[in-house]
Design a protein around this nucleic acid. Structure first.
Lengths: 174, 174
DNA sequence: ATTTTATGTCAGCCTTGTTGACTATCCAAG
DNA sequence: CTTGGATAGTCAACAAGGCTGACATAAAAT
Protein backbone atom coordinates (compact mmCIF):
# COMPACT_ATOMS: atom_id res chain seq x y z
CA UNK A 1 0.00 0.00 0.00
CA UNK A 2 2.62 2.51 0.94
CA UNK A 3 4.41 2.20 -2.34
CA UNK A 4 1.52 2.43 -4.70
CA UNK A 5 1.33 6.17 -5.10
CA UNK A 6 5.01 6.83 -4.94
CA UNK A 7 5.46 4.28 -7.67
CA UNK A 8 2.81 6.07 -9.70
CA UNK A 9 4.73 9.33 -9.46
CA UNK A 10 6.89 10.16 -12.44
CA UNK A 11 10.59 10.82 -12.02
CA UNK A 12 11.37 9.09 -8.76
CA UNK A 13 14.86 10.59 -8.70
CA UNK A 14 13.68 14.12 -8.36
CA UNK A 15 15.35 16.50 -10.74
CA UNK A 16 11.73 17.31 -11.54
CA UNK A 17 9.08 18.48 -9.10
CA UNK A 18 7.18 15.80 -7.25
CA UNK A 19 3.86 14.80 -8.68
CA UNK A 20 1.82 15.51 -5.59
CA UNK A 21 -1.85 14.72 -5.80
CA UNK A 22 -4.23 15.72 -3.06
CA UNK A 23 -4.69 12.03 -2.48
CA UNK A 24 -1.01 11.57 -1.74
CA UNK A 25 -0.96 14.54 0.60
CA UNK A 26 -4.05 13.34 2.41
CA UNK A 27 -2.45 9.96 2.84
CA UNK A 28 0.54 11.66 4.38
CA UNK A 29 -1.77 13.49 6.76
CA UNK A 30 -3.46 10.28 7.84
CA UNK A 31 -0.11 8.63 8.22
CA UNK A 32 0.97 11.35 10.62
CA UNK A 33 -2.21 10.90 12.61
CA UNK A 34 -2.02 7.14 12.88
CA UNK A 35 1.72 7.03 13.47
CA UNK A 36 1.54 9.60 16.24
CA UNK A 37 -1.04 7.45 17.97
CA UNK A 38 1.26 4.46 17.81
CA UNK A 39 4.14 6.60 18.89
CA UNK A 40 2.43 7.63 22.14
CA UNK A 41 0.58 4.39 22.86
CA UNK A 42 3.29 2.62 24.87
CA UNK A 43 4.20 5.44 27.25
CA UNK A 44 0.50 6.21 27.75
CA UNK A 45 0.00 2.78 29.27
CA UNK A 46 2.79 3.28 31.79
CA UNK A 47 1.75 6.81 32.65
CA UNK A 48 -1.70 5.59 33.53
CA UNK A 49 -0.30 3.59 36.44
CA UNK A 50 1.11 6.76 37.93
CA UNK A 51 -1.96 8.88 37.24
CA UNK A 52 0.12 10.92 34.84
CA UNK A 53 -0.58 12.06 31.31
CA UNK A 54 1.43 13.05 28.30
CA UNK A 55 2.14 16.42 29.80
CA UNK A 56 4.10 14.74 32.57
CA UNK A 57 5.95 12.62 30.07
CA UNK A 58 6.98 15.68 28.10
CA UNK A 59 8.32 17.35 31.24
CA UNK A 60 10.30 14.29 32.23
CA UNK A 61 11.65 13.91 28.72
CA UNK A 62 12.93 17.45 28.34
CA UNK A 63 14.24 17.77 31.86
CA UNK A 64 16.18 14.61 31.22
CA UNK A 65 17.45 15.92 27.92
CA UNK A 66 18.43 19.30 29.32
CA UNK A 67 19.20 18.92 33.02
CA UNK A 68 19.03 22.19 34.85
CA UNK A 69 16.83 23.92 32.35
CA UNK A 70 14.55 26.61 33.74
CA UNK A 71 10.80 26.74 33.85
CA UNK A 72 10.88 29.37 31.16
CA UNK A 73 12.95 27.17 28.88
CA UNK A 74 10.43 24.41 29.33
CA UNK A 75 7.58 26.76 28.57
CA UNK A 76 9.25 27.76 25.33
CA UNK A 77 9.84 24.17 24.33
CA UNK A 78 6.42 22.85 25.22
CA UNK A 79 4.46 25.83 23.99
CA UNK A 80 1.92 25.80 26.79
CA UNK A 81 0.96 28.38 29.38
CA UNK A 82 2.82 28.53 32.64
CA UNK A 83 -0.35 27.77 34.57
CA UNK A 84 -0.81 24.62 32.62
CA UNK A 85 2.81 23.62 32.97
CA UNK A 86 2.91 24.56 36.62
CA UNK A 87 0.09 22.23 37.53
CA UNK A 88 1.93 19.30 36.04
CA UNK A 89 5.32 20.38 37.32
CA UNK A 90 3.99 20.81 40.84
CA UNK A 91 2.77 17.23 40.85
CA UNK A 92 6.11 15.95 39.64
CA UNK A 93 7.99 17.93 42.27
CA UNK A 94 5.61 16.82 45.02
CA UNK A 95 5.96 13.23 43.86
CA UNK A 96 9.72 13.60 44.06
CA UNK A 97 10.23 13.00 40.36
CA UNK A 98 11.70 16.40 39.62
CA UNK A 99 13.84 18.62 41.78
CA UNK A 100 13.50 22.37 41.47
CA UNK A 101 16.61 24.22 42.64
CA UNK A 102 16.85 27.98 43.00
CA UNK A 103 19.14 29.38 40.30
CA UNK A 104 22.67 30.28 41.30
CA UNK A 105 23.32 33.30 39.09
CA UNK A 106 19.70 34.39 38.92
CA UNK A 107 17.84 33.40 42.06
CA UNK A 108 14.47 34.04 40.42
CA UNK A 109 14.97 31.08 38.18
CA UNK A 110 14.34 27.46 39.07
CA UNK A 111 16.62 24.89 37.56
CA UNK A 112 14.96 21.55 37.02
CA UNK A 113 16.56 18.14 37.49
CA UNK A 114 15.28 14.60 37.53
CA UNK A 115 15.49 12.84 40.87
CA UNK A 116 16.46 9.20 40.93
CA UNK A 117 12.79 8.19 40.84
CA UNK A 118 12.17 10.59 38.01
CA UNK A 119 15.10 9.26 36.04
CA UNK A 120 13.84 5.73 36.54
CA UNK A 121 10.37 6.59 35.31
CA UNK A 122 11.73 8.57 32.39
CA UNK A 123 13.92 5.65 31.44
CA UNK A 124 11.03 3.22 31.39
CA UNK A 125 8.90 5.58 29.32
CA UNK A 126 11.71 6.29 26.95
CA UNK A 127 12.66 2.65 26.70
CA UNK A 128 9.24 1.74 25.33
CA UNK A 129 9.20 4.58 22.89
CA UNK A 130 12.74 3.99 21.71
CA UNK A 131 12.00 0.31 21.22
CA UNK A 132 9.18 1.16 18.86
CA UNK A 133 11.27 3.78 17.13
CA UNK A 134 14.20 1.42 16.84
CA UNK A 135 12.02 -1.28 15.35
CA UNK A 136 10.52 1.13 12.84
CA UNK A 137 13.99 2.40 11.94
CA UNK A 138 15.40 -1.09 11.54
CA UNK A 139 12.50 -2.33 9.47
CA UNK A 140 12.58 0.73 7.25
CA UNK A 141 16.32 0.92 6.74
CA UNK A 142 18.82 3.77 6.93
CA UNK A 143 17.81 5.57 3.78
CA UNK A 144 14.19 5.67 4.84
CA UNK A 145 15.24 6.96 8.26
CA UNK A 146 17.15 9.73 6.63
CA UNK A 147 14.10 10.68 4.58
CA UNK A 148 11.86 10.45 7.62
CA UNK A 149 14.03 12.88 9.51
CA UNK A 150 14.32 15.22 6.58
CA UNK A 151 10.58 15.52 6.05
CA UNK A 152 9.77 15.86 9.75
CA UNK A 153 12.34 18.63 10.09
CA UNK A 154 10.59 20.56 7.36
CA UNK A 155 7.28 20.23 9.10
CA UNK A 156 8.40 21.92 12.29
CA UNK A 157 7.37 25.50 12.82
CA UNK A 158 10.44 27.57 11.91
CA UNK A 159 10.11 29.74 14.96
CA UNK A 160 9.95 26.75 17.28
CA UNK A 161 12.98 25.17 15.67
CA UNK A 162 14.86 28.39 16.20
CA UNK A 163 13.97 28.51 19.87
CA UNK A 164 14.96 24.92 20.50
CA UNK A 165 18.21 25.26 18.61
CA UNK A 166 19.17 28.37 20.54
CA UNK A 167 18.53 26.52 23.78
CA UNK A 168 20.87 23.77 22.67
CA UNK A 169 23.50 26.29 21.65
CA UNK A 170 23.27 27.98 25.00
CA UNK A 171 23.83 24.63 26.68
CA UNK A 172 26.84 23.85 24.56
CA UNK A 173 28.27 27.21 25.47
CA UNK A 174 28.28 26.49 29.20
CA UNK B 1 21.94 19.18 12.07
CA UNK B 2 19.66 16.50 10.75
CA UNK B 3 22.43 14.85 8.80
CA UNK B 4 25.07 14.65 11.45
CA UNK B 5 24.12 11.38 13.05
CA UNK B 6 23.12 9.60 9.92
CA UNK B 7 26.44 10.57 8.42
CA UNK B 8 28.17 9.18 11.49
CA UNK B 9 26.49 5.82 11.01
CA UNK B 10 28.56 3.16 9.30
CA UNK B 11 27.25 1.35 6.26
CA UNK B 12 24.74 3.81 4.90
CA UNK B 13 23.38 1.23 2.47
CA UNK B 14 22.15 -1.10 5.10
CA UNK B 15 23.24 -4.64 4.49
CA UNK B 16 24.42 -4.24 8.07
CA UNK B 17 22.24 -3.22 11.00
CA UNK B 18 21.79 0.47 11.59
CA UNK B 19 24.02 2.03 14.15
CA UNK B 20 21.27 3.34 16.37
CA UNK B 21 22.36 5.22 19.45
CA UNK B 22 19.90 6.21 22.10
CA UNK B 23 20.71 9.76 21.14
CA UNK B 24 19.55 9.17 17.59
CA UNK B 25 16.36 7.52 18.74
CA UNK B 26 15.64 10.29 21.20
CA UNK B 27 16.13 12.81 18.43
CA UNK B 28 13.59 10.92 16.39
CA UNK B 29 11.19 11.05 19.29
CA UNK B 30 11.58 14.79 19.66
CA UNK B 31 11.21 15.22 15.95
CA UNK B 32 7.88 13.45 16.07
CA UNK B 33 6.75 15.67 18.90
CA UNK B 34 7.76 18.95 17.29
CA UNK B 35 6.62 17.98 13.81
CA UNK B 36 3.21 16.91 15.04
CA UNK B 37 2.80 20.31 16.64
CA UNK B 38 3.58 22.00 13.36
CA UNK B 39 1.34 19.60 11.55
CA UNK B 40 -1.72 20.55 13.62
CA UNK B 41 -0.96 24.23 14.08
CA UNK B 42 -2.68 25.57 10.98
CA UNK B 43 -6.00 23.75 11.30
CA UNK B 44 -6.09 24.56 15.00
CA UNK B 45 -6.24 28.25 14.18
CA UNK B 46 -9.22 27.83 11.87
CA UNK B 47 -11.05 25.49 14.23
CA UNK B 48 -10.85 28.07 16.97
CA UNK B 49 -13.11 30.40 14.98
CA UNK B 50 -15.79 27.73 14.96
CA UNK B 51 -15.35 26.71 18.59
CA UNK B 52 -14.18 23.33 17.39
CA UNK B 53 -11.17 21.24 18.37
CA UNK B 54 -9.07 18.58 16.77
CA UNK B 55 -11.72 15.96 17.42
CA UNK B 56 -14.06 17.83 15.09
CA UNK B 57 -11.34 18.05 12.49
CA UNK B 58 -10.75 14.32 12.62
CA UNK B 59 -14.44 13.60 12.15
CA UNK B 60 -14.69 15.92 9.17
CA UNK B 61 -11.56 14.44 7.67
CA UNK B 62 -12.63 10.83 7.85
CA UNK B 63 -16.24 11.42 6.91
CA UNK B 64 -14.92 13.22 3.86
CA UNK B 65 -12.57 10.37 3.09
CA UNK B 66 -15.19 7.68 3.54
CA UNK B 67 -18.64 9.12 2.85
CA UNK B 68 -21.39 7.06 4.38
CA UNK B 69 -19.26 5.40 6.98
CA UNK B 70 -21.01 4.45 10.20
CA UNK B 71 -20.41 5.73 13.69
CA UNK B 72 -18.84 2.40 14.54
CA UNK B 73 -16.42 2.66 11.64
CA UNK B 74 -15.40 6.07 12.87
CA UNK B 75 -14.96 4.74 16.40
CA UNK B 76 -12.61 2.08 15.11
CA UNK B 77 -10.58 4.59 13.15
CA UNK B 78 -10.36 7.23 15.83
CA UNK B 79 -9.83 4.88 18.73
CA UNK B 80 -11.92 6.81 21.22
CA UNK B 81 -15.02 5.85 23.14
CA UNK B 82 -18.33 6.25 21.42
CA UNK B 83 -19.51 8.65 24.07
CA UNK B 84 -16.59 10.92 23.37
CA UNK B 85 -17.14 10.75 19.64
CA UNK B 86 -20.85 11.23 19.99
CA UNK B 87 -20.57 14.56 21.69
CA UNK B 88 -18.43 15.93 18.90
CA UNK B 89 -20.57 14.33 16.24
CA UNK B 90 -23.74 15.75 17.76
CA UNK B 91 -22.32 19.25 17.53
CA UNK B 92 -21.36 18.77 13.93
CA UNK B 93 -24.79 17.42 13.08
CA UNK B 94 -26.53 20.25 14.92
CA UNK B 95 -24.30 22.76 13.17
CA UNK B 96 -25.29 21.22 9.86
CA UNK B 97 -21.77 20.16 9.02
CA UNK B 98 -22.49 16.44 8.98
CA UNK B 99 -25.63 14.60 7.97
CA UNK B 100 -26.54 11.42 9.80
CA UNK B 101 -28.83 9.17 7.80
CA UNK B 102 -30.48 6.06 9.20
CA UNK B 103 -28.95 2.97 7.63
CA UNK B 104 -30.92 1.29 4.88
CA UNK B 105 -30.06 -2.34 5.54
CA UNK B 106 -29.58 -1.96 9.27
CA UNK B 107 -31.66 0.80 10.77
CA UNK B 108 -29.56 0.84 13.93
CA UNK B 109 -26.68 2.25 11.98
CA UNK B 110 -26.16 5.87 11.03
CA UNK B 111 -24.37 6.65 7.81
CA UNK B 112 -22.44 9.90 7.94
CA UNK B 113 -22.00 12.41 5.14
CA UNK B 114 -20.60 15.92 4.92
CA UNK B 115 -23.10 18.65 4.14
CA UNK B 116 -22.08 21.45 1.84
CA UNK B 117 -21.03 23.56 4.81
CA UNK B 118 -19.10 20.62 6.22
CA UNK B 119 -17.35 20.02 2.95
CA UNK B 120 -16.38 23.67 2.77
CA UNK B 121 -14.93 23.67 6.26
CA UNK B 122 -13.13 20.40 5.68
CA UNK B 123 -11.65 21.78 2.50
CA UNK B 124 -10.28 24.86 4.23
CA UNK B 125 -8.79 22.79 7.06
CA UNK B 126 -7.31 20.30 4.65
CA UNK B 127 -6.01 23.01 2.38
CA UNK B 128 -3.84 24.45 5.15
CA UNK B 129 -2.54 21.10 6.20
CA UNK B 130 -1.88 19.95 2.67
CA UNK B 131 -0.02 23.17 1.95
CA UNK B 132 2.35 22.51 4.81
CA UNK B 133 2.70 18.89 3.85
CA UNK B 134 3.26 19.80 0.22
CA UNK B 135 5.94 22.28 1.15
CA UNK B 136 7.71 19.78 3.39
CA UNK B 137 7.51 17.15 0.65
CA UNK B 138 8.82 19.50 -2.00
CA UNK B 139 11.66 20.78 0.15
CA UNK B 140 12.65 17.28 1.16
CA UNK B 141 12.41 15.63 -2.23
CA UNK B 142 10.81 12.41 -3.44
CA UNK B 143 13.27 9.99 -1.91
CA UNK B 144 12.90 11.56 1.49
CA UNK B 145 9.11 11.41 1.12
CA UNK B 146 9.33 7.74 0.36
CA UNK B 147 11.43 7.18 3.47
CA UNK B 148 9.11 9.32 5.55
CA UNK B 149 6.14 7.22 4.55
CA UNK B 150 7.99 3.99 5.09
CA UNK B 151 9.04 4.81 8.63
CA UNK B 152 5.65 6.21 9.63
CA UNK B 153 3.93 3.09 8.34
CA UNK B 154 6.12 0.98 10.60
CA UNK B 155 5.20 3.07 13.58
CA UNK B 156 1.46 2.45 13.29
CA UNK B 157 -0.07 -0.08 15.61
CA UNK B 158 -0.47 -3.26 13.56
CA UNK B 159 -3.97 -3.85 14.78
CA UNK B 160 -5.05 -0.34 13.86
CA UNK B 161 -3.57 -0.65 10.40
CA UNK B 162 -5.48 -3.86 9.92
CA UNK B 163 -8.77 -2.27 10.93
CA UNK B 164 -8.31 0.71 8.64
CA UNK B 165 -7.28 -1.43 5.69
CA UNK B 166 -10.29 -3.70 6.12
CA UNK B 167 -12.56 -0.66 6.12
CA UNK B 168 -11.05 0.44 2.83
CA UNK B 169 -11.46 -3.02 1.38
CA UNK B 170 -15.09 -3.10 2.41
CA UNK B 171 -15.60 0.22 0.63
CA UNK B 172 -13.96 -0.99 -2.55
CA UNK B 173 -16.23 -4.02 -2.51
CA UNK B 174 -19.44 -1.99 -2.61
C1' DA C 1 13.15 53.79 44.15
C1' DT C 2 10.82 52.02 40.47
C1' DT C 3 10.10 48.88 36.87
C1' DT C 4 10.74 44.61 34.72
C1' DT C 5 11.36 39.71 34.84
C1' DA C 6 10.81 34.83 36.55
C1' DT C 7 8.07 32.11 38.89
C1' DG C 8 4.13 30.39 41.47
C1' DT C 9 -0.83 30.27 42.56
C1' DC C 10 -5.94 30.80 42.55
C1' DA C 11 -10.25 30.69 40.07
C1' DG C 12 -12.87 29.42 36.27
C1' DC C 13 -13.68 28.00 31.50
C1' DC C 14 -13.38 24.61 27.40
C1' DT C 15 -12.27 20.41 24.82
C1' DT C 16 -12.06 15.82 24.87
C1' DG C 17 -11.01 11.88 27.07
C1' DT C 18 -13.38 8.39 30.47
C1' DT C 19 -17.40 5.10 32.64
C1' DG C 20 -22.18 3.88 33.45
C1' DA C 21 -26.92 3.72 32.27
C1' DC C 22 -30.26 3.90 28.71
C1' DT C 23 -33.00 3.28 24.05
C1' DA C 24 -33.67 1.27 19.54
C1' DT C 25 -32.97 -2.29 16.48
C1' DC C 26 -31.72 -6.73 14.79
C1' DC C 27 -31.47 -11.65 15.00
C1' DA C 28 -31.86 -16.15 16.56
C1' DA C 29 -33.63 -19.85 19.69
C1' DG C 30 -37.40 -21.55 21.86
C1' DC D 1 -44.40 -15.21 17.57
C1' DT D 2 -42.10 -13.95 21.27
C1' DT D 3 -38.40 -13.36 24.13
C1' DG D 4 -33.68 -12.59 25.16
C1' DG D 5 -29.09 -11.38 23.82
C1' DA D 6 -26.10 -8.71 20.94
C1' DT D 7 -25.28 -4.51 18.47
C1' DA D 8 -25.65 0.68 17.32
C1' DG D 9 -26.20 4.76 19.04
C1' DT D 10 -27.49 8.47 22.80
C1' DC D 11 -27.47 10.92 27.32
C1' DA D 12 -25.25 12.21 31.87
C1' DA D 13 -21.62 13.05 34.83
C1' DC D 14 -16.72 13.24 35.82
C1' DA D 15 -11.45 14.03 35.13
C1' DA D 16 -7.22 15.54 32.73
C1' DG D 17 -5.10 19.10 30.88
C1' DG D 18 -5.32 22.75 27.76
C1' DC D 19 -6.70 28.00 28.17
C1' DT D 20 -7.27 33.15 30.17
C1' DG D 21 -7.04 36.53 33.77
C1' DA D 22 -5.66 38.33 38.13
C1' DC D 23 -2.47 38.56 41.59
C1' DA D 24 1.83 37.72 44.83
C1' DT D 25 6.67 37.45 45.57
C1' DA D 26 11.34 37.75 44.92
C1' DA D 27 15.16 39.24 42.44
C1' DA D 28 17.26 41.69 38.84
C1' DA D 29 17.76 45.78 36.10
C1' DT D 30 17.28 50.60 35.41
Amino acid sequence: MQNRNIAAAPSYRGEQLLFLTDEQLRQGIELMFFAYRGFTADPDRILEDYGYGRAHHRCLHFVNRHPGLTVNDLLDILGVTKQSLNRVLRQLVNDDMIESRVGQEDRRQRNLYLTEAGATLEASLSEQQRARMRKAYMDAGPEAVHGFRTVLEKMIDPELRHRVLSLMERENGR
